[in-house]
């Protein structure tokens, strides 16, 4: 996984709330193996019509916004299904950070496993950022994980909160399983004790 430290890129404002994972990656593309093809499917049905032509009104198709690598959304971004493909497609299309007032819980979790940084900022800030991006298409935003700050197009700086465990993993690009295996002894001890306390739990699935 690619580490995330500080990232500056053109940002795109997406005003809708509740952008669900079916919008990010339609269900009919879920069976693709994990390879570079995912990038071409991002927001597929919002971006392209049935004949594969670009839908002009969709913001990612508009001049100035095409090269964006950061999304500034509304609330509940990534709600819906658990599909990690929604994160694969965003990452493969070049996105490294999403700024929103809230995220779907599973999407939020999945992001950290793929080097995508979801940033929660207050409503007022997010609205202000989106307005500035609408006003000046192509404007850049910086997301700095080390200092835990977002810098807007007008150079205003906004601090954000993030759980230290996830921050650490992203900064170092750590593999989750490798990290957990350092706790192997704790897991084994737990399992032995658990079997004593709840024997039905250890045997129930073995029939």
């Amino acid at each position: 996984m690619e580490p995330f430290t500080c990232f500056t890129a053109i940002a795109i404002p997406m005003d809708q709330d509740n952008i669900d994972t079916d919008q990010i990656l339609p269900a009919r593309h879920l069976m693709m193996p994990r390879d570079e093809r995912y990038g071409g499917y991002v927001f597929k049905d919002l971006r392209l019509d049935q004949n594969g032509n670009e839908i002009e009104s969709f913001i990612l198709n508009q001049e100035g916004f095409r090269p964006s690598r950061i999304i500034v959304a509304g609330h509940n971004f990534g709600c819906g299904s658990s599909r990690e493909g929604a994160v694969f497609t965003l990452v493969d299309a070049g996105f490294r950070a999403i700024i929103a007032t809230s995220f779907g819980d599973i999407f939020y979790n999945n992001s950290f496993n793929n080097g995508l940084l979801p940033v929660v900022l207050p409503e007022e800030t997010v609205q202000r950022l989106r307005q500035q991006l609408h006003d000046g298409p192509g404007a850049e935003v910086t997301v700095d994980l080390e200092s835990q700050t977002v810098t807007g197009p007008d150079q205003s700086v906004y601090p954000f909160e993030i759980d230290a465990h996830r921050r650490n993993r992203l900064l170092k690009g750590l593999d989750a399983v490798g990290y957990t295996l350092q706790y192997e002894e704790n897991i084994t001890t737990f399992e032995e004790d658990y079997g004593d306390k709840a024997p039905w739990e250890m045997s129930a699935t073995l029939r």
């Binding site: 599909r83 599973i106 999407f107």
Partner: peptide, 17 residues
């Protein structure tokens, strides 16, 4: 519900953070 990376974590360790 969890995503694919977490599924592989559960398969390998029977745990989740």
């Amino acid at each position: 519900g969890i995503g694919a990376s977490d599924v592989s974590h559960v398969l390998a360790t029977q745990t989740l953070w």
